[in-house]
Nucleic acid binder design. Sequence first.
DNA 1: ACCGGGTGTGTACGAACGTCCACATCTTGT
DNA 2: ACAAGATGTGGACGTTCGTACACACCCGGT
Lengths: 190, 190
Amino acid sequence: MTSDDRPAGTRRGRRNDPERRGRIIDACLTVIAREGVAGTSHRKVAAEADVPLGAMTYYFDGMDALLHEAFTRFATSISARFEARMTAAVDVQSARAAVVAIILEDVFGDDRDLVLSHELYTLAAREPRFRTITSAWMARSRAALELHFDPETTRMLDALIEGVTIHRALDAEPRDPREVELAVTRITRT
Amino acid sequence: MTSDDRPAGTRRGRRNDPERRGRIIDACLTVIAREGVAGTSHRKVAAEADVPLGAMTYYFDGMDALLHEAFTRFATSISARFEARMTAAVDVQSARAAVVAIILEDVFGDDRDLVLSHELYTLAAREPRFRTITSAWMARSRAALELHFDPETTRMLDALIEGVTIHRALDAEPRDPREVELAVTRITRT
DNA sequence: ACCGGGTGTGTACGAACGTCCACATCTTGT
DNA sequence: ACAAGATGTGGACGTTCGTACACACCCGGT
């Protein structure tokens, strides 16, 4: 990813803080969450990150490369949280509870993540290049679920989580948390 | 072209064919499917529909209004197909089969619809104005499912359909059709 | 026959965009 | 101390965008 890995030791000191690249990526996600991929431009990201416009093309080979890195960071952080939840579960019962918690808290909790997810999905639906990000994300989720469930159940749970997420975002109808529990129960009883 | 033989109303004769508005909407969906909402402009839609640029602002109050109409048409046509499938089912068993068919054929079948769905979802996730479209869509799906299933099961099925759709679009991993059947079975057995 | 208003269009305009590159500034080796 | 190279920047350029408006066209009424 980061093509400019420091050649260690002798080479010190960027002119400015070395976190600039990272700041730009974070700013990019912020802008996407606020204005959508459609409304994201070099200029807006530069303003958000408080770097000059010229820095955009200096650090990234165009908007597309920046988007790719930004969404990679996003997906990685989301799936890390997912994995942590599932790893913490010690048996099937607590794993079920973890799945419910993921849906109710992580997914339902944060509007920013919700919006960013959709932006990524849309990008990935059209451009295969972004599908490596979503594939990796899903593979990691699946692996985490398979710590506790058989592969078939895992697929179903994964789909359920996804589907509830979508409906949560797009449906006016309020959701009853108990429904989520019930659904998880039905799917995981074999 | 197509000299318009007006049916009787006092008001005879638009200058051009009265289907222009509709053609623009269809062209808009085509452009969105090809280039995304991000890449959709008045000019591209005008070119696709083969109408002058000026016609865009003449028929629609800006891009946003056009998008809203376009996605309304899209969602309506999709949910009509869904409803037809469910209405045709005569008992629970055929209803289950219908759900499986919807997932495997309608949803898995058409890349264009998949992409357009995601574009709409993303729009709706950010802008409440577009959520009326998705809400109506989902309400109609739910109503159709409730012809055969109880409300709770309906919600779960709905979420499952959505989730499998997403994963189908974004996951490299191939899906086994039998998994879909199994999932539907598990959810619908009470 | 011709006029008046409704219908539709060509085009110009300012804003915003991504990209590029000459140049300013700093670091390092000598 | 200074040259040379690495690092980062400001602003100009050409493109594309949405919008607006003056005007061409057509039709029904007189």
